[in-house]
Amino acid sequence: MKLKTVKSLLNTDTIFEASAEKDDLEVKNACGADLMSDVLAFSNEKTLLLTGLTNPQVVRTAEMVGIQVIIFVRGKDPQIETISLANQLNIFLYSTDKPLFEACGLLYKNGIGPEEMNFIETSK
């Protein structure tokens, strides 16, 4: 699904995005979480994070696992430091009035699958 469709389904407000071309970004899978360690522990490569947390560490967590898009649920506005870090790291931020459960449900129903829960392959 294109990011443009995600934005339309969730009726998002744009907080930060690098350029309009990013509407063509392909969102293959997503995760919804309010615990950053869970994002770090159970997530595989993905593009989209839905969360109710708005502090800068959400953007840091996204950076560590390669998430390109963060959508804040329940109409929350992130802290200015969060926006500034996202700007620096080129991670797009949006907000939606929908709660986490509904936002995830809408994307799932419209074809975004669950992320694969495979762990990173290690040499063990």
Binding site: D34, L35, M36, S37, A41, L53, Q57, V58, F119, S123
Partner: peptide, 18 residues
């Protein structure tokens, strides 16, 4: 409340470390 303290920190580190 900041999203930390899930009790997965060192567990994660051990999982990925050789």
């Amino acid at each position: 409340e900041m999203g930390f303290g899930a009790g997965m920190g060192l567990v994660n580190v051990k999982r990925y470390a050789d």
